[in-house]
Nucleic acid binder design. Sequence first.
DNA 1: CAATTGATTGATCAACTGATCAATAGACGA
DNA 2: TCGTCTATTGATCAGTTGATCAATCAATTG
Lengths: 212, 212
Amino acid sequence: MSTVQSTSRRKAPVERAAEIARTAREIALVEGLSAITLRGVASRIGVTPALVSHYQPSMDVLVAATFGAIVAAEIGEVAEELAPCETSVATLQALINTLLGPERSAVTAVWLDAWSLGRRHASLAAEVGVQMDAWQAFLSGLLTTGCARGEFRTADPDAVAWQLLAIIDGLNAHAIVRYGDAKRLRGLVRTVAEHELGLPSGALGPADGSVL
Amino acid sequence: MSTVQSTSRRKAPVERAAEIARTAREIALVEGLSAITLRGVASRIGVTPALVSHYQPSMDVLVAATFGAIVAAEIGEVAEELAPCETSVATLQALINTLLGPERSAVTAVWLDAWSLGRRHASLAAEVGVQMDAWQAFLSGLLTTGCARGEFRTADPDAVAWQLLAIIDGLNAHAIVRYGDAKRLRGLVRTVAEHELGLPSGALGPADGSVL
DNA sequence: CAATTGATTGATCAACTGATCAATAGACGA
DNA sequence: TCGTCTATTGATCAGTTGATCAATCAATTG
């Protein structure tokens, strides 16, 4: 019976590859991208380092792929969570709340690792560019749609999207180290977005504590 | 003659220590904090790794000290550059221009390294906290002075200072990878600062390209 | 049952890392 | 000039890391 797993440790290549990828993702989210090692991944799934090496051409591509998978999953989850929103304003509001929510520290730390390690690993640097473009395209599309609907008003949605993403990353990065005040973070980004998108003050959410 | 350097490689301890610290700083600014190694520093100054090890209790503290020295120098240079400014508005304006200037990428990369590596090196993490507090105190003091002079108007200068620093870091981090448009960066931060500090639009500088 | 395929292993390699310690050699004082 | 002090060395250690390759063993096939 080919579909039944025997008691052996032997697995189908696709399953093993997926297992390795998943394990690398778990390690990266907890201990950082640089904690992904052959022996670390191997010991977690109970195999030999040589096996992990057999499934991956090199560690560089494993790290880059792991980072890409984490960010892709991040975007996917956010997009899914934003799907019910009917207006662009509501979507943007939910996006800000999500990206500055309490569960962001792990992914933010991975981004910091990627920015830092990317300067030495070419494949990771390329993946960082890809994923930054993905986020840029995601938010830029949201803003452009909002402009087309007449909800937003800006001459350059791409520039505004880039600025908002940069601000969000900066706030999250600082929040990892100090002063994790989620309400304040959201309030600030709301204010910037409202200003940049021609929205009336308070359009992006309840005034949960004034920004100033 | 004690003041004359002989042809020997032997040096006074203070000079050697300074040489090591300076070399570590140069390496960090070019290749990153994680590129600081015993052999790397030693080979640059033409000595044995054991000598560097003899002057430093451990690599962790050398990396932390190097990071601290770089940031301290950064704050010092900025403060010196801002000294001629007479009003708080002019000072803040100059600060924004400096921190988002074209020469920031090296120091920003060091900050990214520190945030990333700080999660694994306790001494570096502590130094990151110290230096973030130093920057926070610097800008917070500037804003508080401006408030006392009646130039700024905000209920919480500390919060505004933290937000501005976070935004600046986020913009600089993104600018390292993509879209390095200095004018736009400055314009955005100016807008945020003007809004947060009760300033009229354009108070922090010429409108070199509208933000929106 | 026998044979082939391939997932997995164990051993091993070279290249790094930080760190230690006795021995050395250069500078200075007496 | 001799002796002391110490900055400096050379050798070496133990610990990582990623990577390779023949050997092995399980599963599937004939």
